[in-house]
């Protein structure tokens, strides 16, 4: 069966790097510094009344979504699909706290905004969009699952899908991870990345999604990788770059040696966690990073995103440059 082409017609990211509205951001990136998320002036994207009540994750998601539509000039996407590993933590934490400490009538706003689908709901509200609206939550593969859903919709005949992912860091997360002995080797951060994926390429479209596969309980990631590349008629050494997520330094050496053995220059392999930090849907940042790299250098024909942020899960996404 002839494979469909899925063009990335817009991309937008808010992260701890200067990414929002900055094409070419990949040129000058240094390792992520934890404290500050670099945010735009949200008032340009969100009504002031709404903005006051919105948590970090909602602000990031709505701003990135609106930026994507502005880039494509679309009024409405056919569908809005989001992925989130941990959802709206700020409001969940807030309402849990209220519910356990306050007697009597509780303020409902935090509860209302605590459900995972608040992001997609707020985006549909802010656009007045009545299309398909979905939220995937499969920890470190939440974004890949959202992307697969978007590609399915294009196969079913839809034309423009707004798809993205976000997660937010809250204080208690650092405490919890240290108690649980989770040391990812990079700072815990927040981030949101949204995309418009379209059937037809637009003006200035530089990249497309060739394939995306979330793998549960990945026992032999290298075998899965080889099979994934074979399905796309590629070998490891055909890759222009591998953008990967491997936490800490434990397995990193293992993967690097595999890629070196396959003949890949270590300079072509980048651990994206060093750029965006650690959050469950960081692979969405990696996709925008890949698109941005291609926008600066069209000779990057095949970029693989290898998401092994959590060792039980493996996300594989192949991004290809589009002929100018």
């Amino acid at each position: 069966m002839e494979k469909n082409t899925y063009y990335i017609t817009a991309a937008s990211t808010i992260s701890h790097q200067d990414t929002f509205g900055k094409t070419g951001f990949s040129d000058s990136m240094s390792p992520v510094v934890p404290p500050a998320l670099i945010t735009p002036d949200y008032k340009a994207f969100i009504d002031a009344g709404l903005l006051r009540r919105m948590s970090k994750i909602l602000r990031m998601a709505v701003a990135c979504a609106k930026d994507c539509l502005a880039q494509t000039g679309l009024d409405q996407p056919d569908a809005i699909i989001t992925g989130t590993g941990l959802g709206c933590l700020q409001d969940t934490d807030k309402f849990l706290n209220t519910s356990l400490t306050v007697e009597g009538l509780l303020p409902p706003t935090a509860f209302i905004q605590s459900t995972h689908n608040t992001m997609a709901g707020q985006i549909s509200l802010s656009l007045g969009n009545h299309g398909y609206n979905m939220t995937h939550t499969q920890n470190t593969l939440s974004f890949e699952h959202a992307m697969v859903d978007a590609l399915l919709l294009l196969d079913e005949g839809e034309e423009h899908i707004l798809v993205g992912a976000a997660d937010e860091h809250i204080e208690i997360l650092s405490e919890i991870t240290s108690h649980l002995g989770y040391a990812p080797g990079f700072p815990l951060t927040s981030g949101a990345s949204f995309f418009t994926i379209s059937k037809e390429k637009g003006e200035g479209t530089v990249a497309r999604i060739a394939d995306c596969e979330p793998v549960a309980f990945a026992k032999d990631p290298v075998k899965k990788l080889t099979r994934f590349l074979n399905n796309n008629s590629l070998e490891i050494n055909d890759l222009s770059k591998i953008i990967y997520a491997v936490p800490g330094n434990a397995n990193e050496g293992e993967y690097e040696s595999i890629w070196r053995k396959a003949g890949l220059d270590p300079e072509k392999c980048i651990n994206y966690l060093s750029l965006c930090g650690v959050y469950p849907t960081a692979s969405a940042f990696a996709l925008n990073y890949a698109v941005d790299l291609i926008s600066q250098d069209r000779s990057l024909k095949n970029i693989l995103i290898f998401n092994a942020l959590r060792k039980e899960n493996l996300g594989l996404t192949l991004v290809q440059s589009v002929e100018a």
Partner: peptide, 10 residues
Amino acid sequence: SDYVNTLSTA
């Protein structure tokens, strides 16, 4: 294990 996914739309 071939496909494991969770949806959360309230």
